[in-house]
Design a protein around this nucleic acid. Structure first.
Lengths: 229, 229
DNA sequence: CGACCATTTGATATGGATCAAGCGATGTGG
DNA sequence: CCACATCGCTTGATCCATATCAAATGGTCG
């Protein structure tokens, strides 16, 4: 058993943010900023990283685990904005204060960086400025894709979600889902029942297999894509 | 990409690029960049500004009229990403190529700016770099709010749209809508029938008045907000 | 083993889509 | 100036995808 745990851990740190040893002159860029000035934090399951409405003081990079951003509407409906995996940076969205809250889905470690620090540093480091802009651009792209997901049918949404997760997973055919059905449902604007039924249906069509609730095996990638719009 | 579209586009950009003579010391920031290096273009009703999948070469600022961004799914469903009014900048989203297309809703004039120019200029102009980042941030905020709209009920979506438009209109109570019911429906992920019915219902509740199809008068702002989640 | 929680499965209800007219502006040719 | 076509919008009737309500199952941890 310990071997397996170790393997999982190592994997969690796999992402391509390189942390250089700081022996030389001041380095440039966002990875360097995180490495040099970032503070590591750990969060337990369902622990809050920041709350909606709080001032946006920090940028966050996931080192291990998984973070969800979400907003709860006045009547209790919850919308999940996105899932952030190791290597992902979140918290760029807010100009003044956060529109969403952020929570750890599983025990997670995160490096935080003061925005004021990054921004003042960006004034003299055009690489960093450029990377921040690219980061914001990719978050924008993500949000726009999310909008496109939300107008599709239940089946298309679930397939879209699976393809999205598969694209980010190591193995491309075996997906380990850190989030619950409720998280998925709230991300897709569906109910858990509909998500569950749709997954069962996809399994019956032998497009996927579900060895357990949190594991998805992509059996037939093109069939899956065909279910997409 | 249809050849026809490409032809139209090429033609559109054949216009002379005006570079204003620089009398004073170099100015900073995005407005200055648009003023100094931007090229004005005009587009007729439903004319394409750029097509989805095209390389993202330019930034665009609306001077007059109204632009919609949208994407057509394989089966013909259309999603409108946003409406851009005078003063708004669009086209920041794309890192490589555009996810959405853009069209003029009414005859419009737009100033275009080469991205490569803005970005290289941003390396030495931290004000500009900062403004680009803020711009991307506000677009991100817009997209995230759009996601939140799309999980609400039909009534909440329509009310949300009206409040959004009211906030941007000059008069705050009298809204002139440049876009059709179909545009609104495709922005909200509803059908024209549902949009129309909802507007009629809001009129019957005397929250709004509809002197004509394209004019909305906000009769009771707080009642309207109460219809929102 | 037993309690608890997440997930699946089943039966029914419903909001919004779809299908189908009708209506009111705007424009066009006679 | 009027008949008439056109187009965007509204209104009505019906249908269906997904929500809701309810219960069974399974997996995890003490």
């Amino acid at each position: 058993m310990p071997a397996q745990v170790l393997a999982t851990r190592t994997e969690a740190f796999r992402q391509p943010i390189q942390i250089h040893p700081v022996h030389k002159a001041p380095e440039n860029g966002l990875p360097a900023a995180f490495a040099m000035m970032g503070a590591p934090l750990t969060f337990g399951r369902n622990e809050e990283v920041f709350g909606e409405g709080e001032g946006a003081e920090y940028l966050y990079r996931v080192n291990a685990g998984c973070i969800r951003t979400y907003k709860v509407l006045s009547d209790g409906r919850r919308q999940v904005g996105g899932f952030y995996l190791p290597g992902d940076v979140f918290g760029i969205e807010a100009s003044e204060e956060h529109l969403f809250s952020a929570e750890a889905i599983v025990p997670s470690t995160v490096t935080v960086l003061k925005r004021s620090m990054v921004f003042s540093r960006a004034a003299g480091d055009s690489t960093l400025a450029r990377q921040l802009l690219e980061l914001a651009g990719s978050e924008l792209h993500r949000a726009q894709s999310h909008v496109l997901l939300l107008i599709k049918t239940a089946q298309e949404r679930v397939v879209g979600f699976l393809l999205e997760m598969a694209a980010r997973a190591r193995s491309r055919t075996e997906i380990e889902l850190p989030m619950s059905r409720q998280d998925i449902a709230d991300y897709l604007g569906l109910t858990i029942e509909t998500v569950s039924r749709t997954l069962t249906h996809l399994e019956n069509s032998s497009a996927i297999a579900l060895p357990s609730a949190r594991r998805v095996v992509v059996r037939n990638h093109s069939a899956l894509c065909r279910f997409n719009a």
